[in-house]
């Protein structure tokens, strides 16, 4: 489904190497964790996938599509296939949980009927049915991240990309968020997650790609956090 072919990213004309000859594949419905120290190239890798950043060398394929040859005007359509979750949630502060999720559907040009139907479903999936009218500042960190996940899945993407989704969360909230991501994966969506959290990786028992200095140093199908 996703194929990185010998991808390198070099900043400042060779001074700083973010990615170096990265090659790997992700199959449909896989749950892949990418681990590594800060600056190992995890975030750069994800940015390549959503065409936020361009590789210096190599190609990134999404199904049969070369991600970086997509015309600028077509990028929004491509990004709709990918749901994104971030460490800092990126919720809109002046919108309620419901509106934050509905906003993603509005931006995709979905009808009001679809929004009325899908938003409650997405919020129910992340266990927030009781808090749909709360604003972000009235929610805990874990709840905010669950709203963000609901927003990422509401358009039924093929993949969820989660960049350090548990980075700002306490252990209980971390556990809940990971369980939700697992549930989404069980429902058939591919999940790619980056993390620092050893506990999360060890509890998951799924594929783990370990990166260091822009290179993949380990790729275990039922990996542990080893660094």
């Amino acid at each position: 489904m996703i194929y990185f072919d010998n991808v390198s990213k070099i900043y400042n004309g060779g001074d700083s190497i973010a990615l170096q000859n990265v090659t790997f594949q992700v199959a449909p419905q896989e749950f892949v964790s990418i681990v590594g120290h800060s600056g190992a190239g995890k975030t750069t890798l994800l940015k390549m996938l959503i065409a936020e950043d361009f590789p210096t060398d190599g190609t990134v394929f999404f199904e049969s599509l070369n991600v970086h040859s997509i015309p600028r005007g077509q990028l929004p359509n491509f990004r709709r296939k990918i749901g994104t979750v971030f460490q800092d949630f990126k919720l809109l502060p002046h919108k309620t949980a419901w509106e934050n999720v509905a906003f993603a559907m509005e931006a995709n040009g979905r009808t009001d009927e679809e929004i009325a139907e899908n938003v409650p479903q997405a919020l129910a999936l992340v266990d927030l049915s009781a808090k749909i009218l709360q604003f972000p500042h009235e929610l805990s960190g874990g709840e905010k991240q669950r709203v963000a996940i609901a927003r990422a899945i509401v358009n039924q993407p093929d993949i969820i990309i989660a960049d350090e989704p548990t980075g700002n969360l306490d252990p209980i909230a971390t556990y809940e968020v990971v369980q939700i991501l697992k549930k989404i994966n069980d429902l058939g969506t591919t999940v790619i997650m980056t993390t620092h959290n050893k506990g999360v990786i060890d509890a998951l028992g799924r594929r783990v790609i370990t990166m260091d200095e822009g290179k993949i140093i380990r790729d275990d199908s039922e990996g542990k956090y080893v660094l």
Binding site: P76, R79, A107, G109
Partner: peptide, 15 residues
């Protein structure tokens, strides 16, 4: 901020 979120969720340029 709103714009970056819009782009994130795949809002079209016209939107």
């Amino acid at each position: 901020e709103e714009i970056s979120v819009m782009r994130l969720v795949g809002a079209s340029n016209m939107f």
